[in-house]
């Protein structure tokens, strides 16, 4: 069970990106996807640390996929969003939409 039910902003970004990548979400790909999608350069260290945190909170799972060639023979850590994670995302989104309700005009034309 997750201890905290509110998602941090970066956590959201990562979770959403992982979902977009379906079953191919691992460090390198997550970072390049975020950069491509929203033009945001993320630091490697914060990505890995946040992934650890997400896993500790039970919102993603990971498994080791043995490497093919390259990577110095080291495995990949493929991550997936858990149902709890999806749940947390949904809650976050709802909260945001509620707060945004009536303020659309602030978004400008």
């Amino acid at each position: 069970m997750g201890k905290e039910s509110y998602l941090g902003e970066f956590e959201q970004v990562l979770l959403l990106t992982i979902m977009r990548l379906n079953d191919e979400a691992y460090g390198v790909r997550i970072m390049s996807e975020v950069e491509e999608r929203i033009g945001r350069r993320v630091s490697r260290g914060s990505v890995y640390v946040t992934l650890d945190r997400l896993e500790d909170k039970g919102w993603i799972t990971s498994e080791s996929a043995p490497a093919g060639s390259g990577r110095g023979g080291r495995p990949r850590r493929i991550v997936r969003v858990t149902p709890e994670g999806v749940d947390a995302l949904r809650k976050s989104r709802e909260a945001l939409l509620t707060l945004w309700d009536g303020l659309e005009h602030a978004l400008g034309g």
Partner: peptide, 9 residues
């Protein structure tokens, strides 16, 4: 190990 692998990639 995965982090090291990512870096290597």
């Amino acid at each position: 190990a995965a982090i090291l692998g990512d870096l290597h990639e």
